[in-house]
């Protein structure tokens, strides 16, 4: 099966079948990744550029390693060392990259919809590595991969996503994706961080942290995005930690088999305490490994589609 679009803009644009295809492919890629020899030739003769307008550790490095493990020519541009600093527009910047025979542009941008805006202008495939508050599709894919790997299926799982939903592209992508694959998503956070109409994405907005976590198979904390707080959404970190943090007592309400997830980076003691972060239930570090496998799968499938065209 091939992906329908040349670009991976968001989970919103994808079908359940496409998501499953990527997760299945990622299983294969994880075997490559964890074998002694990580080299494949799927991207040989191809070029992959990462263009990041925002900071990143995991996403950027995992995309870069994924493309290198698969043999592509790859380079990265950060806004600080490029003509973006001279005021070059986004469209001019990506057109320039496109004109260097680039196959895939992986972009993170602080504006929602930035990848959707540029994609129609480019021959290259655009992969959304996070756009504003809109989506972070490959994060959701790796989260779904992690859950599926542990539980075998996503169908019927209860997933609690807790914290700053308003600013979270991870919450949006996960809610869309998990719902498409039959999981039940419960959201909880301070009411000022729960955007209006979110339940129309097919999830349940819990009335308490306990309700969200009760009987959950997976509990996901979200980073409190202190840099995105344009307005006062909670009074203090101390108060947030007391009422909205995922504490061991709360976690006891989840299933005994439940897993803890977090997209990282984590504010220890805010979203969840270190004891939860490092508990045996925590798959937070495993998520990172899976991130490389999922991104290998995404690059593989996009290049496969390009080769067919």
């Amino acid at each position: 099966m091939t992906l329908r679009s040349k670009d991976l803009l968001g989970i919103n644009e994808m079908t359940a079948e496409e998501i499953t295809e990527i997760l299945d492919t990622a299983e294969m890629m994880k075997r490559v990744l964890t074998s002694g020899n990580k080299k494949t030739s799927h991207l040989q003769g191809k070029s992959v550029i990462t263009l990041f307008y925002e900071n990143s550790t995991r996403t950027r490095l995992s995309f870069e390693l994924a493309s290198k493990y698969m043999g592509s020519a790859s380079a990265n541009i950060s806004t600080s060392g490029s003509s973006v600093n001279k005021g070059e527009s986004l469209l001019d910047t990506v057109r320039t990259i496109d004109m260097m025979a680039t196959d895939i542009i992986i972009m993170r941008h602080n504006q929602s919809g930035a990848p959707h805006f540029i994609a129609p202008f480019l021959k290259a495939s655009v992969v959304n590595a996070g756009d504003g508050m809109n989506e972070h599709p490959t994060q959701a894919l790796l989260d779904m991969f992690t859950m599926r790997e542990r539980f075998g299926t996503l169908e019927g799982l209860k997933v609690a996503i807790c914290g700053d939903i308003y600013h979270s592209r991870v919450a949006r992508s996960n809610t869309l994706g998990l719902t498409k694959l039959g999981a039940k998503v419960f959201l909880y956070g301070p009411p000022t961080m729960l955007p209006i109409g979110i339940k129309e994405m097919g999830c349940t907005v819990a009335k308490s942290l306990d309700e969200a976590v009760e009987g959950a198979d997976a509990v996901m904390g979200l980073r409190v995005q202190l840099e995105r707080q344009s307005k006062s959404l909670f009074p203090s970190v101390a108060e947030y930690s007391k009422y909205f943090s995922i504490l061991p007592d709360t976690l006891a309400r989840a299933k005994p088999t439940a897993i803890i997830m977090h997209p990282g980076p984590c504010n220890h003691g805010v979203e969840l305490p270190t004891v939860v972060y490092e508990s045996p239930q925590s798959l937070i570090n495993e998520q990172v490994t899976n991130g490389v496998a999922v991104r290998m799968a995404v690059l593989y499938l996009l290049i496969a589609r390009r080769n067919q065209q």
């Binding site: 809109n134 209006i196 129309e200």
Partner: peptide, 18 residues
């Protein structure tokens, strides 16, 4: 009114301030 489109389920889904 700091936002880019009507506030509602759609602005929430699109990650735009409403």
């Amino acid at each position: 009114s700091e936002g880019a489109m009507n506030e509602g389920a759609l602005s929430t889904r699109m990650g735009l301030r409403g």
